[in-house]
Design a protein around this nucleic acid. Structure first.
Length: 878
RNA sequence: GCCGCCGUGGCGGAACUGGUAGACGCGCACGACUCAAAAUCGUGUGGGAGCAAUUCCAUGUCGGUUCGACCCCGACCGGCGGCACCA
């Protein structure tokens, strides 16, 4: 009995695979062109398969068991695809810019470059010990100038196409990290990274116009195969809401004139955005955001002081991001003294200022319909403003006796949708409107407001219309324009830190912002001794006068370089392209011919077939990189509109105590220790078996031992037979089928289970070497070292990975005899072994004659007999 | 508040498209081996009743559809994730 010495076996085969370049993806040969869907090259004729994991950030903590889970999962898929004849690209690299490294550098006084190198070395060693079939020849590193010159190149293109702009704006500022934060990086008003309360700070920031792609980022989700929840989350984040922009004329009564601007029957108009133009007859006041430019201009002399005080207060409160504030906080506001005309009713309505209206959404002004909006209602109550309902919920309900429609109160879920017929029917039914109106006022008295869709009343000619239908008509009536607004904001692209890509722009007093010529890329990060972020909000690079002072590329005059760096999401927004480019070129910039140089490779490899990553990146990295890709597509640099065809997500691995693993809790499972004690194959198999791939699971040490046991049981397998029993043949074919299907649909846990069932079978019944070999090939994608070793023990001299994925024969799986349960009134009372092809008549006879069934059938009448072919018999008696 | 997901043994979980609920693994119990323990192997293992054949109950709760429901529909309870003064 040999001992299962995983260390020896794993080291041996890892060396062997590396030496033979087993996992190198093959690029199409030069001159290869796509002809239809085929390539005219032998090399590239194999269908390609590009699978991708999110490249790791090489932190000082080393590899986490969570990394192992997703790397192994895609490794299983990559290996299976190779066995099936695909030309597989499964690359890895390093997303190495970022704060943890910079902070560590500051703390230790060492250079981030050195620390990064060191961390990568550790990560690499750890990953290599797992037997993941990465193509290391395409390794990339975002901090390599040869890499980030392309990141800079893409930025320049964005700038040249008007999608990068500089803007002075209040940004979310983390006082702890001393860095500006994107909206996406503020969680609960706190810095996502360090948890410090975010502040607002006015800074000049580079912005990327991701909002220009908002619609396409939503629409094109239909063309990709992402997990449904990922799509939904992205759609919600982009937050498109359709509505109308409507202008309200300002009309101050003569007595209330703003002396400075002399506004009377003014030409000034206030534009509001609303998703409910249908409720405009109920708009009883307007609200402007405190930052709205018209506030100063329309405020009457009498209200000046009060408004100014309020504005100052609101700005101070701006220190805490407004969105983070408690929902239930009472609304405050102040009257401007000015009035506007409701374009629907022609009535004068007061204009207020309140900070519940945000400047950077919509137009920064709203029409308030207190009867149909919670916030407006709270505000109106507080300041005693008019509340006028104009619609109420309506559910079709026909009272036969009175011939009246009724009103039904229920949740929105039970509400019916309206048909065209309904519209007509309702308009003429005036009694109904009276009922609705009465009910609406009654509800309001009781403090209940209705904000859904319903039937309009008191809305002029639109009374009686269903609100959804009235939207467009009323918008036209008040000369509004249909438009959409987005929750998504432009991407704040500046960071005031050292350890990031320099933004390749020069500021010239004459020419304003001038891009660096592409030939001058990369603009390398200057070597500095001090990286400490400053308190002024300026990047540490600003202190290097020698680097900052430069010539304007346009006019040759004195210029200053941009000293902000890019966020760490920059390098990761296009890295899947870098892996492809690494195949032939070494990222050489030749007159910026990004697309020409790479078009053939891109055509062959794109899109990424399968992309795995964490749910936490759904609204960050995943959205950002889709945006960049679409931009690159628009300028003709890449051939596809989407970068990733399919996106899946792994669940988290918690510590055995059900808590998140963390150093401070001391509950971290180190993959190295598992590899050391049980082996990489056991770790891999265990992580695949631990539970459904997309689900959060807790680590269980006993589970690891169970998997080890599974391998040990077949390590010295010797129960050979001359000929497989029929049962074994069936088991084998079934296993091949199930494991294959389970891998394809990423149900790794049941795949491992199926292999265990098969092993239980052959340990009991024995099997032929041929059968065992087929099993080993299947096992090899999960436990590559173990399978390769056993393969060679069975006198094979070629690698197991030169084999083909085994095929199965459905005919062999089909049993002739099947066990059919006999149900009587839904309960299983007997089971019969019958020929699969038995006719209904035959089985009926058998079932009714069965001893056990007879017991229940005696004296009863047979009401129904159902035979589901090959499945079961169901007998209904009275 | 809005959007989405999930509730199955002692535990992780399985169950194809509505067709024998609890696969596989862990744990536990008993047995074999051993001086003994560990490891290994064997047997059992949802709950209740019964010596047993057997039988009743059981997939968060209540109800519905169906010959048949973990699966479909409705209401509720509990948990998780995302968004949140977005007009």
């Amino acid at each position: 009995m040999k001992k299962y010495n995983h260390k020896k076996i794993e080291a041996k085969w890892q060396k062997f695979w590396e030496k033979n370049n087993f996992y190198q993806a093959k690029d199409p040969a030069p001159g290869v062109e796509k002809v239809g869907t085929e390539f005219n090259s032998v090399l590239a004729k194999n269908p390609k398969y590009y699978c991708l994991i999110e490249f790791p950030y090489p932190s000082g903590d080393g590899l986490h068991v969570g990394h192992v889970r997703s790397y192994t999962a895609l490794d299983v898929i990559a290996r299976k695809k190779r066995l099936e004849g695909f030309n597989v690209l499964y690359p890895i690299g390093w997303d190495a810019f970022g704060l943890p490294t910079e902070n560590y550098a500051i703390k230790t006084g060492r250079h981030p470059v050195d620390i990064t190198k060191e961390n990568i070395k550790i990560f690499k060693k750890q990953i290599k010990s797992l037997g993941i079939s990465f193509d290391w020849s395409r390794e990339i590193n975002t901090t390599d100038p040869n890499y980030y010159k392309w990141t800079q190149w893409i930025f320049l293109q964005l700038f040249k196409h008007g999608l990068a702009y500089k803007k002075k704006m209040p940004i979310n500022w983390c006082p702890q990290c001393k860095i500006g934060l994107a909206n996406e990086e503020v969680v609960d008003g706190k810095c996502e990274r360090c948890g410090a309360e975010a502040e607002q700070k006015e800074l000049e920031q580079w912005m990327l116009k991701i909002t220009a792609y908002a619609d396409r980022l939503i629409e094109d989700l239909e063309t990709v195969d992402y997990l449904e929840k990922i799509k939904i989350q992205q759609i919600n984040w982009i937050g498109r809401s359709e509505g109308a922009e409507i202008k309200f004329k300002i009309q101050n009564p003569k007595s209330k004139i703003n002396s400075k601007f002399k506004i009377q029957n003014s030409k000034f108009e206030i534009k509001v955005f609303t998703t409910r133009p249908d409720t405009i007859f109920g708009a009883t006041f307007l609200v402007l955001s405190p930052e709205h430019e018209l506030v100063d201009k329309i405020t009457t002399d009498g209200q000046k002081a009060a408004v100014l005080t309020y504005q100052e207060k609101a700005q101070n409160r701006g220190e805490i991001p407004r969105q983070a504030r408690d929902d239930k906080e009472e609304k405050t506001g102040v009257f401007t003294g000015a009035y506007a005309i409701n374009p629907a009713t022609g009535k004068e309505i007061p204009i207020w200022v309140a900070d519940y209206v945000i400047m950077d959404y919509g137009t920064g002004a709203i029409m308030a319909v207190p009867a149909h909006d919670e916030r407006d209602f709270a505000f109106a109550r507080k300041y005693n403003l008019d509340v006028i309902p104009v619609l109420h919920q309506y559910i079709e309900f026909w009272d036969k006796e009175t011939q009246l429609h009724g009103i039904h109160y229920g949740s929105t879920k039970t509400r019916r949708t309206f048909t065209v017929d309904d519209y007509n029917k309702i308009i003429t039914d005036l009694d109904l409107l009276v009922v609705l109106k009465e009910q609406a006022y009654k509800d309001l008295e009781e403090g209940r407001i209705f904000s859904g869709e319903g039937i309009l009343f008191d809305s002029g000619v639109f009374s009686g219309l269903y609100s959804e239908k009235a939207k467009l008509e009323i918008t036209n009536f008040v000369k509004g324009i249909e438009t959409a607004n987005y929750h998504l904001r432009d991407w704040v692209f500046s960071r005031q830190h050292y350890w990031g890509e320099p933004i390749p722009m020069v500021y010239c007093p004459e020419c304003h912002w001038v891009p660096l010529p592409e030939e001058e890329l990369p603009l390398e990060l200057p070597f500095v001794k001090k990286y400490e972020p400053t308190n002024t909000g300026e990047s540490p690079l600003a202190g290097i006068e020698k680097w900052v002072k430069t010539k304007c590329p346009k006019c040759g005059g004195p210029g200053r370089r941009e000293t902000d760096t890019m966020p760490n999401w920059a390098g990761s927004s296009w890295y899947y392209l870098a892996y492809i480019m690494r195949g032939n070129s070494k990222f050489e910039i030749q007159n910026s011919k990004f697309k020409i140089q790479n078009s053939k490779l891109f055509k062959y490899w794109l899109p990424v077939d399968l992309y795995n990553g964490g749910m936490e990146h759904t609204t960050l990295h995943l959205l950002y990189s889709r945006f960049w890709h679409k931009f690159l597509y628009d300028i003709g640099a890449v051939p596809t509109a989407e970068p990733y065809q399919k996106r899946v997500s792994h669940g988290m691995i918690l510590a055995p105590d059900g808590q998140k693993m963390s150093k401070s809790r001391g509950n971290v499972i180190n993959p190295d220790e598992i590899v050391e004690e049980h082996g990489a194959d056991v770790l891999r198999l265990y992580e695949m078996f631990i539970g459904p791939y997309d689900q959060t699971v807790s680590w269980d040490l006993n589970g690891v031992r169970g998997v080890r046991r599974f391998l040990e049981r077949i390590f010295n397998f010797e129960n050979w037979v001359e000929q497989d029993e029929k049962e074994v043949v069936i088991a084998r074919e079934k296993t091949i089928k199930q494991v294959g299907e389970d891998i394809d649909s990423m149900r790794f846990n049941t795949a491992v289970s199926a292999m265990m069932i098969f092993v239980n079978k052959i340990i009991e019944a024995g099997c032929t070497k041929e059968t065992f070999k087929k099993f080993l090939i299947i096992l090899s994608v999960f436990a590559p070292h173990f399978a390769e070793e056993q393969w060679h023990v069975l006198d094979e001299d070629k690698s197991i990975f030169d084999e083909d994925w085994p095929k199965y024969d459905d005919k062999l799986i089909d049993k002739e005899l099947v066990e059919i349960p006999i149900q009587i009134n839904g309960k299983v009372r007997d089971k019969l072994m019958v020929d699969k092809k038995i006719s209904e008549d035959e089985i009926k006879k058998m079932a009714l004659a069965s001893e056990k069934a007879k017991k229940y059938l005696a004296g009863q009448t047979l009401k129904k007999f159902i035979y589901v072919k090959g499945r079961l018999v169901s007998i209904v008696i009275s």
